Amino acid sequence: MDDPLNPYGLKISVVIAGFAGGVLRALSRNQHTFRETIASPVCGALGAGYLTEPLVHYLKAIHFPLPPDDGSNVTMHASAFLVGVSAMWISDALFAFVSNRISMK
């Protein structure tokens, strides 16, 4: 069976790992707003889908100690989960930066 997200450059297992990271981030917050509950897993999934491979490539390029690649993609999925957890914080920081830049002009 073909991966339905493959035409978009996404791997379903990476997106699921990022989604799980986003769910963890949403559940660990003290504020349980509707926006946080919905947006955090979605940001986690999308962030992991598009940022995980460049992150793993960068970690390999700087010779960061990673587990050996035995075909199970442990490094990819662990990185996707971590990107998923932090994706909402990254988007919050980017939105704050852009809104500060716009309000300064």
Rank of each mutant, 00 (worst) to 15 (best):
L27V: 12
A20E: 01
R35K: 11
G49K: 01
A78K: 00
V56I: 12
S91R: 00
K105D: 15
L51C: 09
G21H: 04
S103I: 07
G84Q: 04
I38T: 12
D92C: 00
G44P: 11
L24F: 13
S72F: 10
A48L: 07
N100S: 15
P41K: 07
N73C: 06
L59S: 10
K60H: 14
D70H: 11
C43H: 06
P4N: 08
Y50F: 15
F95Y: 08
G18W: 07
W89L: 13
K60T: 13
P68I: 01
F95T: 08
S72Y: 11
S103P: 00
H63S: 15
T75M: 10
V98K: 08
A20Y: 01
M76R: 00
S91W: 04
D70G: 03
S99E: 14
A39W: 05
A39M: 11
F97M: 11
A87I: 00
L5W: 13
P4A: 12
A93W: 04
V74I: 14
T33I: 03
A96N: 05
I62Y: 09
I12E: 05
L5V: 12
R29C: 15
A61N: 09
L94G: 12
T75D: 02
L66S: 10
F81V: 06
F97Q: 07
A78W: 00
Y8D: 14
E53N: 14
G22N: 13
A93Q: 10
P68F: 03
G18S: 08
A80Y: 03
K105S: 15
G22L: 14
A48Y: 05
M76I: 00
M1L: 13
L27N: 12
P68V: 02
L59V: 10
I102H: 07
A48H: 03
P54L: 04
T52V: 13
Y8R: 00
L10Y: 06
A87C: 04
L46S: 12
A26R: 02
A26N: 03
F81H: 02
G47W: 03
